[in-house]
Design a protein around this nucleic acid. Structure first.
Lengths: 184, 184
DNA sequence: ACCATAACTGTCCGATCGGACAGGATTGAC
DNA sequence: GTCAATCCTGTCCGATCGGACAGTTATGGT
């Protein structure tokens, strides 16, 4: 059953993204993915060097976006950095909500994931974001609130669909996080 | 190497709790746990019927507490149920923060976990809590905020230690969640 | 000491897993 | 049709895993 390489690769990535999000990385086997796509496991491994390679390819776009956000925030004026962090983070999370669900399923694997040639870990990324959300404050109370904001946004965004438009949900996420951070 | 059964069982549970929280359920093998405790895998299986049994025994106290909370909230007067939900949930999460970390590591396994003789799943538990946090409102905006509050509390509570007392952290979690829910 | 029970162990089993590999099938250009 | 490149497959491999099992050791009571 030949289909163009690009088509099959796309299908494999789509299914992997969903199954990794539902069952976790280790809870999903290559055979699971291949079976659902309708090809052999060996065919899957023809297109991707390893299971890890699939995971990294799924994660790369969101990590890239996240890193770009962190870089933007590092140049943001301190009086507005926290608010910019909230809006930026909400946008990244909404755009990559499936990847977020996947990451939430296996923080330990994601913690070790790094983009080729870039050794920033998830923990380091999160810390950069906490700093921005905290308006660069080192006060532990402020930083705890920032962790709460991250949890609020990521968990809510990864939750089952609701009867709301994406734009309305986005606004609610932003407003809620701002209230939490005493920025409303 | 004989030690009393209770002592060994306690050690096995402690180590399992930590490793499940760090590596996930599937990412932790029975041999990993046994090795760290200093006994054989077969000895571990003498004390616990299965890997699943360990997981359930670790989860049972927190699930029991969670269910008790939900039951209390069902009888709470509507005008104060949301505030009570916040405080009650924060207390449960702080008390069982390691279990929370463990659950965050494998939501799919936890989703299927049930206490013997009680078929409430994690999803059902969460929905009950969302209802209470929402003050029994069905408005999707209100319920989204409630999901945010759950995420905020659980993720922040499962985060690395900070330079704050437990009581101070508790207060911050409660206050932050109340602001998020427009209850401050 | 004897005995029953609890605790512990090494070994084995079947299943699953990620990945290697040789060979066959398909495709498009000439 | 031929050919090279791409794609796909079944099979096999070694490793790991959870768990079964028979046998040994340790413990406490009599």
């Amino acid at each position: 059953m030949a289909r163009s390489g690009a088509v099959l690769r796309g299908q494999l990535l789509d299914v992997a993204l969903r199954l990794f999000g539902q069952r976790g990385f280790r809870g999903t086997s290559l055979q699971d993915i291949a079976k659902e796509v309708g090809c052999s496991k060996a065919s899957l491994l023809y297109h991707f060097a390893s299971k890890e390679a699939i995971f990294n390819e799924l994660l790369t776009p969101s990590m890239t976006a996240f890193d770009a956000l962190n870089e933007t925030l590092q140049n943001a004026p301190t009086p507005v950095v926290a608010r910019q962090a909230v809006e930026g983070f909400v946008d990244v999370v909404i755009r990559y909500r499936q990847q977020i669900a996947m990451v939430l399923q296996q923080a330990s694997e994601a913690a070790e994931a790094s983009i080729e040639g870039n050794c920033t870990t998830s923990e380091q990324r999160a810390e950069l974001l906490v700093t921005a959300l905290s308006g660069r404050s080192t006060d532990p109370y402020v930083r705890l609130r920032s962790r709460m904001a991250i949890g609020a946004i990521t968990v809510a965004a990864a939750s089952p669909e609701t009867d709301m438009s994406t734009e309305a949900a986005r606004q609610e996420l932003v407003d809620g996080a701002l209230r939490l951070l005493c920025l409303a």
